Structure formats: structure tokens, C-alpha cells
Simulated assay, not measured.
Amino acid sequence: MKAKLIRALSYGGGLLIVSFGITMTILADLGTGAWDALNVGLAMKTPFTVGNWVIFIGIILIIVNALITRSRPIVLSLLTIVLLGYFIDFWLIVVFQHTLFSGLLLQLMILLLGIVILAFGASIYLQAEFALLPIDGFMFAIRDLLGVKIMIAKTIAELIALIVAFLFGGPIGVGTILVTFLLGPLIQWFFPRVGKKLNWKTAH
């Protein structure tokens, strides 16, 4: 019972922290990760919110992933993207509405803080070993389709998102570069340390 509770809290709490980190990178206004830039760009061009587009793009990727891998869509991933989408809108619309950060140094600090928080949240969410985000599923689908290494598949997926984000005027800048190169190593650093603290597999 305790293990299930820890797993549920890791899943929900981790996604909440991830959404806060993403929000910080958006509010820093120095550029966000490729997929977040795509969601922001689409939100700027349509009546829908950033969180809405997290859900819409997630649904599209669930379908695309199923077609590429010739398997059934991972329906559980819907819960992940719905939670993440609503959490992001909660921070952007309810908590930080009309919040603007000015000054390059402050913006850079907010951006770096957001990346660290995002990595920390991801390391918690991943401990639950529940449904992956469709973005991660897309990366694995590309790997299987092209027979390439996971880092190459990740690069291809990021480039696709970056190109579409650019076409829709998404926030691409120094933040995009920092997110791309810092996020992976930070998650790797946090993951085993968070795992030792949670240790839900041995909890009773």
C-alpha cells in the first residue's frame, strides 16, 4: 500500500514539478525547449492555451507513435499529457498571470532555475514507471523505425519540433540550447539520488 502511494505521489507530484519548471523557462523569455516552443508558438497563433496544445500535440504523437510501431496507441499516456497540460495552464494563467521578468541576468537565473526544476521533476515522475510522455514515445519510435541510437533518435525528434516551432513563431533562443544540452545530464544526475530517497519498490 505504501509503495503504491509513493508511486502515485511520484507520478502526480513529479508532473506538477515538471510543469512548474517548464513554466519558468517560458516566463524567462529567452527561449524554451523545442517542444515547449512549439506549444507556445501554436498558442500564440490560436485561441487555445499552451496547456491545450500540450494535450493536442500529445494526442497526435500517440497516434503517430502507434502508426510507426504498428501497435496499439498507449492510452495511458493521455492521462500524463492531460495532467501536464492542465498543470502548465494552472501556473501560467492562475499563478503567474501577467508576470514579466526584465533584465538579462534575472531572466537567465529564472531560465536556469526552470531547467533544474524541470530535470528534478522529471527524475521524480520517471520513478513511478507509469505511462511515458508521448514525446518520449516518439523518440523510441524513431529509434525503432530508423534503427539508430537513442541519442540520434532524440536529436531527430527535437529537430522536427524545432522546425515546426520556428514556423509558428515559437520562442527559440539561448534557452533552447541550454535546455537541449543541460536537461539530459541533470536528469541523469538527479535520477539515482531521487530513487534512493523514494525507494518505493522496497516499501511495504
Results as ranks from 00 to 15, higher is better:
154 K>R: 09
50 V>C: 08
27 L>I: 14
146 L>D: 04
127 Q>I: 11
18 V>K: 02
177 I>G: 01
190 F>E: 05
77 S>E: 09
148 V>I: 10
110 I>M: 08
200 W>Q: 06
51 G>E: 02
69 T>S: 06
115 I>N: 03
72 R>A: 13
10 S>T: 03
190 F>H: 08
188 Q>I: 14
80 T>V: 10
188 Q>Y: 08
143 R>E: 14
202 T>W: 08
168 F>C: 09
74 I>A: 14
93 I>W: 10
130 F>K: 12
162 L>W: 02
132 L>M: 14
43 A>G: 07
109 M>E: 13
78 L>F: 08
169 G>L: 08
204 H>C: 13
13 G>V: 02
133 L>E: 04
79 L>I: 13
40 V>R: 00
153 A>H: 10
194 V>K: 07
79 L>A: 14
22 I>H: 03
133 L>I: 11
170 G>V: 07
23 T>F: 02
173 G>C: 09
53 W>K: 07
87 F>Q: 05
27 L>C: 06
114 G>M: 07
11 Y>D: 13
76 L>Q: 14
52 N>Y: 15
197 K>V: 13
51 G>Q: 02
135 I>Y: 12
71 S>E: 15
110 I>S: 11
10 S>W: 00
39 N>S: 10
146 L>T: 13
119 A>P: 12
80 T>A: 06
21 G>I: 02
8 A>F: 12
89 D>V: 15
153 A>M: 02
198 L>W: 10
103 G>N: 11
86 Y>G: 05
78 L>Y: 07
30 L>K: 00
153 A>E: 03
191 F>H: 08
167 L>Y: 12
176 T>V: 06
50 V>L: 04
63 I>K: 11
129 E>A: 13
75 V>D: 03
47 P>W: 06
88 I>K: 10
123 S>M: 09
187 I>D: 01
203 A>H: 06
105 L>M: 12
186 L>R: 05
60 I>T: 07
114 G>K: 02
137 G>A: 07
189 W>M: 13
72 R>Q: 09
202 T>G: 15
134 P>Q: 02
70 R>Y: 01
71 S>D: 13
158 E>Q: 14
66 A>V: 05
41 G>M: 02
72 R>N: 11
56 F>P: 04
83 L>V: 05
91 W>M: 12
14 G>H: 03
183 L>D: 03
69 T>A: 13
120 F>R: 00
57 I>V: 15
164 V>A: 09
185 P>Y: 04
166 F>E: 04
165 A>N: 02
16 L>K: 03
169 G>I: 06
56 F>D: 00
5 L>M: 15
141 A>Y: 07
62 I>F: 07
36 D>R: 07
119 A>Y: 01
21 G>Y: 03
14 G>A: 08
175 G>Q: 04
14 G>P: 05
164 V>E: 00
177 I>D: 01
32 T>S: 10
18 V>T: 06
8 A>K: 11
39 N>E: 05
171 P>C: 09
200 W>N: 11
84 L>M: 09
52 N>A: 15
50 V>P: 04
81 I>T: 00
89 D>K: 05
81 I>V: 14
23 T>G: 07
148 V>A: 02
72 R>I: 03
49 T>A: 08
